[in-house]
Protein backbone atom coordinates (compact mmCIF):
# COMPACT_ATOMS: atom_id res chain seq x y z
CA UNK A 1 0.00 0.00 0.00
CA UNK A 2 2.67 2.49 1.05
CA UNK A 3 4.61 1.98 -2.16
CA UNK A 4 1.51 2.10 -4.34
CA UNK A 5 0.21 5.32 -2.78
CA UNK A 6 3.62 7.00 -2.81
CA UNK A 7 4.22 6.02 -6.45
CA UNK A 8 0.80 7.44 -7.28
CA UNK A 9 0.89 10.68 -5.30
CA UNK A 10 4.66 11.40 -5.08
CA UNK A 11 4.49 13.15 -1.71
CA UNK A 12 7.53 15.18 -0.68
CA UNK A 13 9.30 13.83 2.39
CA UNK A 14 12.52 14.17 4.36
CA UNK A 15 14.65 11.07 3.64
CA UNK A 16 17.04 11.94 6.49
CA UNK A 17 14.31 11.91 9.16
CA UNK A 18 14.57 9.22 11.79
CA UNK A 19 12.47 6.11 11.00
CA UNK A 20 10.36 5.49 14.11
CA UNK A 21 9.55 1.86 13.27
CA UNK A 22 11.69 -1.10 14.29
CA UNK A 23 10.09 -3.45 11.75
CA UNK A 24 11.08 -1.34 8.73
CA UNK A 25 14.64 -1.21 7.36
CA UNK A 26 16.39 0.45 4.46
CA UNK A 27 16.70 -2.76 2.46
CA UNK A 28 12.93 -2.83 1.95
CA UNK A 29 11.55 -1.48 -1.32
CA UNK A 30 8.87 0.38 0.59
CA UNK A 31 11.26 2.09 3.04
CA UNK A 32 11.03 5.58 1.52
CA UNK A 33 7.33 5.20 0.83
CA UNK A 34 6.72 4.43 4.50
CA UNK A 35 8.68 7.54 5.44
CA UNK A 36 6.45 9.54 3.10
CA UNK A 37 3.25 7.98 4.47
CA UNK A 38 4.12 8.77 8.08
CA UNK A 39 5.44 12.27 7.38
CA UNK A 40 2.38 13.03 5.26
CA UNK A 41 0.09 11.82 8.05
CA UNK A 42 -1.61 9.18 5.93
CA UNK A 43 -0.83 6.51 8.49
CA UNK A 44 1.07 6.55 11.76
CA UNK A 45 1.82 2.83 11.92
CA UNK A 46 0.11 0.14 13.96
CA UNK A 47 1.89 1.17 17.13
CA UNK A 48 4.43 3.83 18.10
CA UNK A 49 7.31 1.59 17.10
CA UNK A 50 5.86 -0.74 14.48
CA UNK A 51 4.45 -0.17 11.00
CA UNK A 52 3.37 -3.74 10.29
CA UNK A 53 4.59 -3.73 6.68
CA UNK A 54 3.48 -7.27 5.94
CA UNK A 55 0.08 -7.01 7.60
CA UNK A 56 -2.91 -7.36 5.27
CA UNK A 57 -5.21 -4.38 4.88
CA UNK A 58 -8.97 -4.25 4.92
CA UNK A 59 -11.25 -2.23 2.69
CA UNK A 60 -11.95 0.54 5.16
CA UNK A 61 -8.34 1.24 6.10
CA UNK A 62 -7.27 1.38 2.45
CA UNK A 63 -10.22 3.73 1.84
CA UNK A 64 -9.12 5.94 4.73
CA UNK A 65 -5.55 6.17 3.41
CA UNK A 66 -6.74 6.89 -0.11
CA UNK A 67 -9.10 9.63 1.11
CA UNK A 68 -6.24 11.20 3.10
CA UNK A 69 -3.98 11.04 0.05
CA UNK A 70 -6.64 12.51 -2.24
CA UNK A 71 -7.82 15.27 0.06
CA UNK A 72 -5.39 16.05 2.87
CA UNK A 73 -7.29 19.25 3.68
CA UNK A 74 -10.41 17.36 4.72
CA UNK A 75 -9.08 14.10 6.06
CA UNK A 76 -5.78 14.71 7.78
Amino acid sequence: MALLIQNTYQFKFDPAAKMPFTDVNESMASYEAIQAMTQQGITLGVSETTFGPSMNMNRYSFSVFLARAENPLLFK
Binding site: L4, I5, N58, Y60, F62, S63, L66
Partner: peptide, 20 residues
Amino acid sequence: FKPRKEITRAEALILIGRAK
Protein backbone atom coordinates in the same frame (compact mmCIF):
# COMPACT_ATOMS: atom_id res chain seq x y z
CA PHE B 1 -19.48 -2.29 1.67
CA LYS B 2 -17.83 -5.06 3.73
CA PRO B 3 -15.45 -2.59 5.39
CA ARG B 4 -13.51 -5.23 7.32
CA LYS B 5 -12.99 -7.58 4.42
CA GLU B 6 -9.37 -7.66 3.22
CA ILE B 7 -8.77 -5.65 0.09
CA THR B 8 -7.19 -7.40 -2.88
CA ARG B 9 -4.49 -5.92 -5.05
CA ALA B 10 -6.91 -5.82 -7.99
CA GLU B 11 -9.51 -3.90 -5.94
CA ALA B 12 -6.87 -1.44 -4.72
CA LEU B 13 -5.79 -0.77 -8.30
CA ILE B 14 -9.39 -0.08 -9.35
CA LEU B 15 -9.62 2.51 -6.55
CA ILE B 16 -6.30 4.14 -7.43
CA GLY B 17 -7.15 4.04 -11.13
CA ARG B 18 -10.50 5.80 -10.61
CA ALA B 19 -8.95 8.34 -8.23
CA LYS B 20 -6.32 9.26 -10.80
